[in-house]
């Protein structure tokens, strides 16, 4: 295959992966590195360098809408970014010193974790009594989220209180480290940290995670760009493909049977994770 044809093929595949990532709530980055390494035989470090750029681009494309609609909590995002950026820088620096086999193994494990997160029956726990939290009070992190009653189109605004910010910061450091190490958004780790630990409504957690992914990705991207682990043509094609795919996915969300798609791609995710683990452990 000629380089130009290969770039066109990579862009097309990234449109599909960005679309699926958007439909499944995983983000396009989850599939990018496995596709580039397993299907196109590219170096895992260069694949991660390309993926991290696409993660930033995807977040910049999706976040403005979440901010306009009032889903994302900007105060929570910036507060938690202190932890994710520290983790991301540590992860990105560590990635430069780890072998490709170790990166494959860690990626395989993270994919299994993402599959488990997809299986988890997410329930909105917002609105229940929560322990008082000094950090959340000092920084005025509490907010309001919109809620749609089941079976109706009625949307009402409900206030929520943020709690366990210190726990959230600890979990976010780990999420940031995984993001920096593997060039993914780590939404599968960020959303539970806000949803389960800090008791943000699920929609707010998802939107805030999307906003944070951009800053976390930028911290890692700077390290990868400075270190020379980014191939411009590859990263450019991946970023454009993923952004177009993510936008397409958000439009298809209303018409595609996401439940069935989720089952199919759960299997795909598990197969990919086994492939990555085999590469790492073989």
């Amino acid at each position: 295959m000629s380089p130009l044809a290969e770039i066109v093929a990579i862009t097309a595949v990234c449109v599909a992966s960005g679309c699926l990532g958007s439909l499944l709530g995983l983000g396009g980055g989850t599939f990018v590195v496995p596709i580039l390494t397993l299907a196109f035989g590219l170096d895992v470090r260069l694949a991660i360098g390309a993926s991290v750029i696409s993660v930033v681009a995807g977040s910049a494309a999706a976040s403005p809408r979440y901010l306009d609609e009032g889903f994302a909590n900007l105060r929570v995002a910036v507060t938690l970014e202190v932890a994710t950026v520290i983790g991301a820088v540590a992860g990105a620096l560590l990635a430069g010193h780890l072998s490709a086999r170790t990166l494959y193994t860690v990626f395989g494990v993270v994919l299994v974790f993402s599959a488990v997160q997809m299986l988890r029956n997410r329930q909105d726990r917002a609105g229940t009594a929560v322990p008082a939290d000094r950090i959340a009070d000092t920084l005025s992190l509490h907010g309001t989220g919109t809620h749609t009653a089941a079976g109706t189109a009625v949307r009402d605004v409900r206030p929520y209180r943020v709690t366990r910010t210190a726990t959230g910061l600890t979990m976010m450091t780990a999420a940031g480290a995984v993001s920096g190490l593997l060039g993914i958004g780590s939404g599968a780790m960020k959303v539970p940290a806000m949803d389960l630990a800090m008791r943000l409504p699920l929609k707010v957690s998802t939107a805030t995670s999307n906003l944070m992914i951009g800053v976390t990705g930028a911290a890692s991207a700077v390290v990868y760009l400075q270190r020379g682990d980014v191939v411009p043509a590859l990263a450019g094609a991946v970023a454009l493909g993923t952004v177009v795919g993510a936008r397409l996915g958000s439009r298809l969300l209303a018409v595609v049977p996401v439940g069935a798609l989720r089952v199919i791609f759960l299997v795909v995710l598990l197969v990919i994770s086994v492939q990555m683990l085999l590469r790492g452990l073989a």
């Binding site: 901010l67 306009d68 609609e69 009032g70 889903f71 994302a72 909590n73 900007l74 105060r75 009070d137 005025s140 509490h142 907010g143 309001t144 989220g145 919109t146 605004v157 206030p159 209180r161 707010v204």
Partner: peptide
């Protein structure tokens, strides 16, 4: 205040 409406944040 302790709370802030998202859309007008």
């Amino acid at each position: 205040g302790a709370s802030e409406t998202g859309a007008s944040e």
